Simulated scan of single mutants.
Amino acid sequence: MRDRSSDGSVRRVRDERSAPSAPPSVPETVAERRELRVGAKAFVTDRDRVLLVEERHEDGSTFWTLPGGGVEPGESFAACLRRELREEIRCPASVGERVGRCVYRHTSRPATTVYAIFEASLGSAPEPNPRERVLDHAWRPPTDLPPATLNPVERFVDRSMTAADGDR
């Protein structure tokens, strides 16, 4: 079942699987309504390293991911990514070709985000913005990602960097 918002950018979907974020009083057989969001992430590389940012969930826990975020109504993927990079790591950026996607099923709220991933280059050194819940950044080889890297991001980086190695 889908409900479109007036601008069409957010949909509600019925997820028949049990969800870790469901309250304990809700039986596992009850379907959960999850918000379906669309976002953009930047795949920024330097030699054999990829740029990751450390972010903080609302509950205070931290995780590592590619920089980027949600597309606002009427915003293109490229405009979203340029805005998010300015907000999160205070960098002007050039956005290139789309190189993939990843799906993240949030555990801190009932939402799933489908991220389009684009090659990007930065116009300055990253400077994390704590007001955007971005605590740190790191340039890491794909074989040495931080343990708290989100699984879909880790899989994407591994596939992308392995494919690049095969092309050399």
Rank of each mutant, 00 (worst) to 15 (best):
H106N: 10
R168A: 12
S61Y: 14
A40C: 05
V13K: 09
A148W: 12
R168H: 10
E72F: 09
P27H: 04
P23Q: 10
I117K: 12
H106P: 00
A40F: 00
R109G: 01
S9C: 05
T29P: 00
A120P: 02
F43D: 10
R4N: 03
E72G: 05
P24C: 01
T149L: 09
A148E: 13
E72N: 09
G74T: 03
D3T: 14
E154D: 08
H106G: 01
D7T: 11
L122C: 02
M161T: 08
E75M: 08
E88Y: 06
E16S: 08
G70S: 12
T29W: 10
F63L: 05
A125Y: 03
D3C: 08
A120L: 02
D48Q: 11
R11W: 13
R2K: 15
T29K: 10
L81C: 04
H57D: 14
E35H: 12
L145D: 00
F77Y: 13
G123T: 10
T112D: 03
T113D: 12
R37N: 08
P73N: 07
T113E: 09
G68Q: 03
A19M: 01
K41V: 00
E54R: 15
P110I: 01
C80F: 01
G96I: 05
S18Y: 02
S94E: 12
V44D: 03
E72W: 09
E87W: 13
P147L: 03
R83G: 15
R33A: 11
E35N: 07
P142V: 03
A163K: 15
S76T: 15
P110K: 03
V157Y: 00
G74Q: 10
S108W: 11
D48T: 08
R14Y: 03
P152Q: 02
E97W: 00
T112K: 09
R155L: 11
A31D: 11
D3F: 13
D136T: 10
S25D: 07
H106C: 07
A93V: 01
E97V: 07
E28K: 14
A19S: 13
S160V: 00
V114Y: 14
R56I: 01
S5M: 04
D3A: 13
L52S: 03
V50M: 08
A138I: 06
R109L: 08
R11N: 08
F156Q: 11
